[in-house]
């Protein structure tokens, strides 16, 4: 699917869409509608999730899902306020996301609800609870 086809597909579930070019687009949604988007993508035979990125923008952590829609890459942003850092797991629909979600949990402290294996991935086991190295606060502290 090319960018405009993906855009038509997810339009009713997202707030705004920015089409960069034929093979890249950004969309913003929220976690209530996330599952609808995943199901819609799945019906269109989108099976590959390239990565999950978490970005700390101050008061909000943006979780960005990168879906490979062959050839277009859909970047789906879910902003989460810092006082409610919870998001449902997508591993039931995209099992390949299991590692990326573990990464997201330990690096940014986003709680992925229903994850089958919520252990740490990269950080050592004696890493203190509640310290998330990719958060803005952590950067201030470690300077």
């Amino acid at each position: 699917m090319h960018s405009n086809e993906v855009a038509t597909l997810v339009k009713k579930h997202v707030d705004d869409i920015r089409i960069v070019d034929d093979r890249c687009l950004f969309a913003t949604s929220d976690k209530q509608r996330l599952e609808n988007i995943l199901r819609a993508l799945r019906v269109q035979k989108v099976t590959h999730i390239s990565a999950i990125t978490g970005v700390d923008t101050g008061n909000v952590v943006e979780v960005i899902y990168h879906f490979d829609c062959q050839p277009a890459e859909l970047n789906l942003k879910i902003p989460l306020p810092k006082d409610d850092l919870k998001i449902p797991t997508i591993t039931e629909i995209f099992p390949g996301a299991i590692m990326y979600e573990r990464d997201l949990m330990e690096m940014l402290g986003v709680k992925v609800e229903g994850h089958p294996d919520p252990r740490r991935l990269f950080l050592p086991d004696d890493w203190p609870e509640g310290e998330y190295p990719l958060r803005k606060e952590w950067r201030e502290k470690s300077k």
Binding site: S50, A51, T53, V55, D56, H66, P95, G96, I98, M99, Y100
Partner: peptide, 16 residues
């Protein structure tokens, strides 16, 4: 840069 995310290919293959 504000944020750089790198997803290397091996990371993508571990799940399998």
């Amino acid at each position: 840069p504000e944020r750089v995310r790198v997803r290397t290919p091996t990371y993508g293959n571990f799940a399998s």
